[in-house]
Design a protein around this nucleic acid. Structure first.
Lengths: 234, 234
DNA sequence: TGTGAAGTGTCAGTCGCTGTCACTAGCCTG
DNA sequence: CAGGCTAGTGACAGCGACTGACACTTCACA
């Protein structure tokens, strides 16, 4: 068969590959929809595979476990952030660069994932993770792995040896700790928009230096559950 | 109802109560020993119950799930830390108080847990948690709950409204982020002693302010995988 | 066009965990 | 101290996540 289709730009190889991708995507979407509509725990793997009409065994050939499918999109978002961090100018300090990267990443999540899943489905998925104990636990463990990656990146930027200088890991840990609080509080709030979490991110990061001051004599810059962004401290 | 038994000081009530406590402790110890000797995943609940000669059903009446038994001692250590934090003088700033509490808690873990389990078994258990993905995930989720408790405590100390002022949660998040890195690196090292983790804790906490400085122009105070304690920054 | 391998379905089995029910043993009352 | 109450337990059946083994279909490539 003289293959006339030039596989335009995507890595569209043989029929087999495309079929595989299709079933994987179908499983992913079906799972996400079931999860957000009826909850993670109340969704069985059989329900997912029934919706896609494959056997349960096939599901476990694509995803190591039921949790993994819930983090497929999260994976994309995380690499998106890492890419944003790599793109920060070398002139920026470590914390400055991380802050810039997070905000830039939120500004452009849509284009990073919309091919796979609409943004609001992802946001609902993120909320599901934050509110489902089993998923939250896995999320936090995955986050520590991401933290290590970021620490390596920061050490590289600064030309430091990660194992000789504790600052990269310490800075990243403090930074990510604040990010996690942000994610948690966002998940508990009502506004589930990207803008909301972006706004909160900015506000909470602005509080990190004031919060670590030796004494809190003055009230913070802008009080409130999701305070407006503005830093008194450096 | 004329209750003549004054229940002297310990909660030593009837025979029933004592029997319960005994089987619970037996399950706990058997589980911990099996976990550290052959690994968490390679230990089945049946093995644990066989060692204590009770039915599997009984195990799940004492522990909600297999993970819970691995965190029973950790629970004690965490309340020990919270108690230490409550005991800090009001004159100390938030970060100062947390730092003091952690170090004081490590100095006195032994007396806090030795009645239930020898310290080195606890330390090996802690290492197990750090090195077992399933346990690490749960550990991190539990840690966020502890974080919230600490944040409330700090807010109280400072006379602030936790939901109006972001600084308590931000400070605690940054602090606990650094603590977590410490725990992880300790788990990977060879020295599993309490002294080792105490030393690392001190060293890494000393790096939090330098690490968050806008730019890292100078090398850190004391480089090395487990740097000696000494703070350049505030 | 036939051969090998990739992908899938089926089946049986393990392990964590839960509901149910009957039974035993401490406890409490009369 | 007899008899009833109930907390704690064991036995059993069953669900859901996950795995290994094997046979079958279907694409790929010579």
């Amino acid at each position: 068969m003289t293959d006339l289709r030039p596989a335009p730009d995507a890595p569209a190889t043989g029929l087999r590959e495309r079929k595989k991708r299709r079933t994987r995507d179908a499983l992913l979407r079906a799972a996400l929809l079931l999860f957000v509509s009826q909850g993670y725990d109340r969704t069985t793997v059989d329900e997912i595979t029934d919706a896609v009409e494959v056997s349960q065994r096939t599901f476990f050939r694509y995803f190591a476990n039921k949790e993994e499918v819930a983090f497929a999109v999260q994976d994309l978002v995380e690499s998106h952030f890492v890419a944003a961090l790599r793109a920060r100018p070398a002139s920026e300090g470590p914390v400055e660069a991380m802050r810039g990267a997070v905000l830039a990443a939120w500004d452009t999540v849509e284009e990073a994932i919309s091919e796979v899943v609409p943004v609001d489905l992802y946001m609902r998925g993120y909320q599901l993770i934050e509110s489902t104990p089993a998923l939250l636990a896995v999320h936090l463990r995955r986050s520590t792995e991401l933290e290590e990656e970021i620490a390596r990146l920061i050490a590289d930027r600064e030309g430091l040896d990660l194992d000789a200088d504790p600052r990269p890991r310490v800075a990243v840990a403090a930074f990510c700790g604040v990010m996690r609080v942000t994610g948690r509080l966002w998940g508990q709030g009502e506004d589930t928009s990207v803008e909301a979490i972006r706004r909160m991110t900015e506000a909470y990061l602005d509080q990190i230096r004031p919060a670590l001051a030796a004494h809190w004599h003055r009230p913070p810059a802008a009080p409130g559950p999701a305070p407006a962004a503005s830093a008194t401290g450096v």
